[in-house]
């Protein structure tokens, strides 16, 4: 199975980071993978996305044309990527930030009010990690239990004090899926 994931939203929402954590978890499982960011002149705001491919086979192109996993954290990103999702794929929508519903009927959709949940648990900037938790719990593209180690090894020294909060956010996302 090959998981082709696009994570998209505004710059500053931590999309590149959640992608890195996912990629790192795949590395820990010795899977083949690639992580490719969009890069542009803007550092904050603007649109931003990253592509993560996890596979048992060597990764060909790191560029994803038809993701089978899409995580969106703003409406422009849903507009941009909705039609590209492969039939049967899964879309994770931050329903606290995106008012509209997904129009496609041939994909599975998970609406998760991640930004609202994050605010309630006083982890406002960690909606990305909540959705990541939901993705791994639902799809098992990597062993969800590997996320903790991946986070430990990926988080920068500057933000190391936020590790526990990150872990809590991932756990909240997983719990959301388990219901």
């Amino acid at each position: 199975m090959t998981y082709e994931t696009i994570m998209a939203g505004f710059g500053g929402q931590g999309l590149l980071f959640s992608g890195k954590v996912l990629a790192h978890a795949a590395l820990l499982e010795n899977k083949e993978l690639s992580w490719l960011p969009s890069y542009g002149p803007e550092m904050r705001g603007g649109t931003c996305n990253c592509s993560v491919i996890i596979s048992d086979e060597p990764v060909g192109s790191p560029i994803i044309a038809h993701p089978n996993v899409l995580m969106v954290m703003n409406e422009p990103s849903l507009d941009k990527f909705e039609d590209t999702v492969a039939p049967g794929g899964t879309i994770f929508v931050d329903s606290a930030l995106i008012g509209r519903k997904v129009r496609r009927t041939d994909v599975e959709v998970v609406y998760i009010p991640a930004t609202k949940m994050a605010t309630e648990m006083e982890a406002k900037s960690l909606a990305n990690m909540i959705i990541l938790g939901a993705i791994v719990e639902k799809l098992r593209c990597v062993d969800p239990d590997k996320i903790e180690q991946a986070l430990r090894e990926t988080i920068s020294a500057r933000k190391a004090n936020l590790l526990d909060l990150n872990l809590k956010a991932v756990a909240a996302g997983r719990a959301f899926i388990r219901g």
Partner: peptide, 10 residues
């Protein structure tokens, strides 16, 4: 090229 520089792989 820019992609090769920016992408991460094991």
């Amino acid at each position: 090229d820019g992609t090769m520089g920016q992408m991460m792989e094991p």
